[in-house]
Simulated scan of single mutants.
Amino acid sequence: MGYELRFGGSVDLGDPAMDAKATSALLVEAFGDIGLETLAGRHPAWVTIARNFLVEIGPPPVRPDRAVLQIKAYSAREDLLQILQKLARSGYTIALDEYDGSLIDNVEELMGLCSIVRVDVSAVSAEDLPRVLRVPKMQGAMLVATEVGDHAAFERCKALGFTYFQGEYFAQPRIFRHRGVATAGLGSLRRLSELTAGDISFEDLERIISSDIGLSLKLLRYVNSAFFALPRTVGSVREALAMLGVRTVRRWATVMVISSIPDVPDELVALGLRRAHMCEILAGSALPEERETLFTIGLFSVADALLNAPMADVLDSLPFTEEIQTALLRREGPKGELLAAVAAYERGEFPTLPTTDSSPSLAGAYRSALAWADEASRAVA
């Protein structure tokens, strides 16, 4: 439904006293210099707006249909209520953020202007949630559960009447009572095992892909898409291998298999692609083999959610080195620590990594991975 825009460092756009000029500079950079298409694609950007910004400057530099304006839940003075009324009449969608049921002045009037109420469900006990939701439900607000950590929390929130959900739950596996990979994913796992096995030869890779008609057709359609911009149409797996090389074809055949797993959300595949490319970029000037390993680690970091099984069970069936397994299972070792930093950055936690003058930044790598993964996802679909 949208992507939340978060700012790093010590900036808190939710602070009622946040300087309007600082807020303005950040929003102009986000919406102007970077651009909404890069940040949120076809979805609206959800952005927290400081009270002082609205009072002193007005609405942000973005069309009403391209943003959801988030206002932190605190007592609103009359000047802010008047501005919110004007924004609502102008077509802006306004969300009340971090609502926890605390008594605040003008809460009903404020909620009358906010069509969306966001609740951090990790900060409210399951027993207390019905009380917290009483007023928003009376006001007819759309409920958004944030910080949803797993599928159990997701099911609880859904039963309580939440409409939209934000958090780690969709990137976590739904663990069932039996161990092992669900039946629907076994064929995909076998194919992934073949594709990721050591130094695979040209002939072996051609045999593996050609023996799966669906995979062959999907791979050829992808290779001939605008993403690769090849000078001529590729008509066979052998021709693709000859033109692109074993490493490239194996990479994209693996992505094809992952994207074909039944009942997998598109956003989960996109998340794996973003992590994969971001890890690869942060490898810097490393050897191609090292970059390929980091791409694989990023891509398979969502394998447990893709296959709805514990990561240890998934890795039991894949011929990965101990280094890759350690990175994926425990986020240990240099590659595991890099993956942990990538995952933290995408959550808006803004970690730091050891850098040199020539090292790519996390921010730059994320922005590049965002654009690259969007393009790759469109071609994969």
Rank of each mutant, 00 (worst) to 15 (best):
S377N: 13
A95T: 00
A371D: 14
E127N: 14
R378K: 12
F300D: 09
D374C: 09
V132T: 05
V264E: 08
E29C: 07
S358E: 15
T163G: 08
M311F: 00
M138I: 12
D199Y: 12
S188G: 15
I209G: 04
A242V: 04
R131S: 12
S24A: 13
I116L: 15
L294E: 01
L217D: 11
F7P: 05
A67P: 11
A73M: 09
K137M: 05
G167T: 10
I116Y: 13
L84Y: 08
I175L: 13
T296H: 03
M278Q: 09
A229K: 05
W252T: 04
A76T: 13
I208D: 01
L69Q: 05
G112F: 15
W372N: 03
Q139N: 11
P231G: 07
S115P: 07
L294H: 01
Y169T: 08
I208K: 03
R247K: 10
F170L: 12
L282W: 02
A67K: 09
R191Q: 12
L80K: 08
L189A: 06
W252P: 04
A22L: 12
D15C: 10
S210W: 00
A253H: 00
F31L: 07
P310L: 08
V223F: 00
A197P: 05
A145H: 08
V255I: 13
L215Y: 00
R330W: 03
K21E: 15
E109C: 09
N308E: 11
G149V: 14
E375V: 10
R134G: 02
D19C: 09
R63M: 14
G245T: 02
I175S: 02
I49M: 04
P231M: 09
R330F: 01
Y345I: 00
D357C: 07
A197W: 05
V148L: 02
T38K: 10
E292A: 04
G180F: 05
S368E: 15
S211Q: 13
T146N: 12
E346A: 04
S201W: 07
Q82K: 14
L87C: 01
E337Q: 08
W46H: 03
V47I: 02
V135M: 10
